[in-house]
């Protein structure tokens, strides 16, 4: 007995048992932690409440921005004027922090409608419409500036206001949360 433990440098059966026990405990521990972490994620009811919502565009006048909620998140629907569309299109791509042409941010044939998430991509405040250097949005929290396409043009926000999934059901109705099935 004593000889085997003092002289053998080779891994022993006991070493193997230690490692196997430790590994089983680690896997067991991780398995136990998993459901607790998962319980923090958006729950089934919250996910279910994320069903698509329909928005009627007829009451939204030109130049107006309307706020709606989808999945608890704020969304801006902006009925852009001709100048606002032109300003959004005539932009030197190279000057943008998050380069994206205006055409990629609206649905084809519906350039007057801009639909974007309404929380600043910096830390989530609600930017104020028609304000700031580009008359798009200005975030009062830390000074991010967005243009009439919702693209970031200044301040600490890293990316453009993202576009939620949506589609046009008709010329005057959109469905937020559902992309057109092409």
């Amino acid at each position: 007995m004593a000889e085997t433990t003092t002289h053998v440098a080779e891994p022993t059966r006991r070493d193997f048992l230690y490692i196997a026990t430790g590994a089983a405990a680690a896997v067991g521990g991780a398995t136990l932690v998993w459901p607790f972490i998962q319980s923090l994620a958006p729950d089934a009811a919250t996910v279910a409440a994320g069903a698509p919502v329909e928005v009627d565009l007829t009451p939204i006048a030109q130049g107006q921005i309307v706020k709606v909620f989808w999945r608890g998140k704020l969304i801006f629907i902006r009925h852009r004027t001709a100048e606002e569309i032109k300003a959004a299109e005539d932009v030197n791509m190279a000057s943008l922090r998050d380069p994206q042409p205006d055409s990629a941010r609206v649905k084809e044939g519906h350039a007057q409608w801009l639909v974007v998430y309404g929380n600043c991509t910096h830390l989530g405040c609600v930017p104020l419409g028609q304000q700031g250097e580009y008359h798009g949005w200005f975030c009062p929290c830390h000074g991010s500036v967005f243009d009439t396409s919702g693209r970031v043009r200044g301040g600490p926000a890293p990316i453009n206001l993202p576009i939620p999934p949506y589609s046009f059901a008709s010329d005057t109705k959109i469905i937020i949360g559902q992309e057109a099935t092409a």
Binding site: A41, D43, T46, G72, K73, L74, G124
Partner: peptide
């Protein structure tokens, strides 16, 4: 909103972490 969004600055997993902090898609009842 502002403080939990600080975690969204973490590359790759930031947004997932934030939704786990919120228990939703924005600050709310959970």
């Amino acid at each position: 909103t502002v403080i939990t969004n600080l975690f969204s600055a973490i590359p790759v997993v930031g947004d997932t972490i934030v939704s786990y902090l919120w228990g939703g898609y924005s600050v709310g009842n959970p």
